[in-house]
Design a protein around this nucleic acid. Structure first.
Length: 404
DNA sequence: TCTGGGGTCCTAGGACCC
DNA sequence: TCTGGGGTCCTAGGACCC
């Protein structure tokens, strides 16, 4: 039996959600109806467009372009800051609502999810009507619009929800591949970015149909493992399951920060790294995971990125151990050139500590502070991070200074 | 006044072992 | 004595997504 998968995508999520927030807090104007964008702080050098209103789009403003450039295109553009905490609240509401229609939901990002509707048709007249019902209910209940894409697998549902926006339902069933998918430019295919598209153009493949009829051997020469994906995608083939676990498995945790001014002072960098280490290790502990690998991420003033990583002897979630590793990596890998960004990434995550202790390490275990750490995390959660964090951070910073 | 932040997956190359 | 070849682990970097 064919599966029925919905892909539900919030239209202009950041802009819509900010518009709702502003309206609920007494702002008179609906920013969806004026030339507006959500963007980072220009002076802090985080000034790129994260989302744009339909009118802003008409001025040729595109996502991810610098705000100063967007303003050139549209001088009376209104810029609003992102409110990620609010977005998480809105996202949660919307996904909880969807659970009444099917238990099989996979979050794909903050504003998208897949829902497996296979076998629910006895409850509703047909899937297209059900999609309209969901779309309209979300609009009435929450005040924002969504696109619903329907297909026999995740790929087709995802492609369908992208066809025409906003506030639309589209299908891309098996028997519609030739008429709806094949005429598209290959660059529209999910997972085909700039680089892949230009490689395809070079071998004279411009449409999905042309890709579908390109010899797999020829594709493999250029795209290696990706060739099989490309070929399958062009025929609308995708066997992957809709599964909650796909989203919650968590393979890495990272945080980065772009500085208002380039920094090459190592003490300042270490302060940033300490705050970042605290952030990622806390998330690690919340997820009950342990990290095996620690990385430091850099971006220099010319926007060139580099990174360095090292494995830990044993998986851990303790701030102190991980921070010491971070500093060790910094000492070895920092190129002593001014940086515009620094970050920490924990990867190779596992569920269990599963360590092999030597007798020496075992005796150190008596001073294990993992329970203290948990208590601190809980207190922070209850009273806000300002209370406990600075103390714990200062402690580590101090110890570190004494060492050096 | 150039270019956010959080992710996943893949590949190439070096080290090391047998 | 003049150096094969396979396997595994690890790291760095890049492509892509939202």
């Amino acid at each position: 039996m064919d599966r029925i998968i919905f892909h539900i995508d919030v239209n202009n999520a950041f802009l819509s959600w900010t518009a709702i927030y502003l309206l609920e807090h007494g702002y008179k104007e609906d920013i969806r109806k004026i030339p507006s964008i959500i963007g980072g702080e220009e002076k802090e050098r985080r000034g790129i467009v994260l989302a744009k209103s339909p009118i802003a789009k008409k001025f040729g403003i595109v996502t991810a372009e610098p705000i100063y450039q967007a303003k050139k295109k549209c001088p009376n553009l209104q810029v609003f800051p992102a409110n990620h905490e609010w977005y998480r609240i809105e996202s949660h509401k919307f996904k909880e609502y969807l659970k009444q229609y099917s238990p099989v939901i996979e979050e794909f990002s903050i504003d998208e999810c897949f829902v497996d509707m296979t076998g629910t048709n006895y409850l509703y007249k047909n899937y297209i009507e059900l999609a309209h019902k969901i779309k309209n209910e979300i609009k009435e209940k929450f005040g924002f619009t969504v696109n619903v894409g329907i297909g026999n697998n995740k790929l087709c549902a995802k492609m369908a929800s992208d066809f025409e926006k906003p506030d639309k339902v589209h299908t891309l069933f098996k028997d519609e591949i030739v008429t709806k998918l094949w005429p598209l430019d290959v660059k529209n295919l999910f997972m085909v970015g700039k680089k892949t598209a230009s490689e395809l153009y070079k071998i004279n493949v411009h449409t999905v149909e042309e890709l579908a009829h390109t010899n797999i051997k020829k594709l493999e020469k250029i795209f290696k493992k990706q060739a099989k994906y490309l070929k399958n995608a062009s025929w609308g083939i995708d066997d992957s399951e809709v599964s909650e676990a796909n989203y919650h498995r968590s393979i890495s945790i990272s945080t980065t920060e772009t500085f208002p001014h380039d920094i090459d002072d190592e003490e300042k960098l270490k302060n940033y790294l300490l705050v970042q280490t605290e952030k990622v290790t806390r998330e690690l502990r919340e997820k009950n995971k342990y990290a095996n690998t620690v990385a430091v991420i850099y971006k220099d003033k010319n926007f060139n990125s580099y990174s360095a990583q090292e494995k830990l002897k044993n998986p851990t979630n303790e701030t102190k151990i991980i921070y010491n590793k971070v500093i060790e990596i910094l000492d070895k890998s920092f190129k002593k050139q001014p940086l515009r960004l620094i970050g920490v990434r924990l990867s190779d995550l596992c569920e269990q500590k599963n360590e092999q202790l030597t007798i020496f390490e075992l005796s150190n275990k008596i001073e294990d502070n993992s329970s203290i750490q948990k208590t601190i995390d809980e207190l922070n959660k209850k009273f806000g991070s300002d209370l406990i964090i600075p103390a714990s951070l200062k402690m580590i910073a101090k110890e570190n200074k004494e060492k050096s």
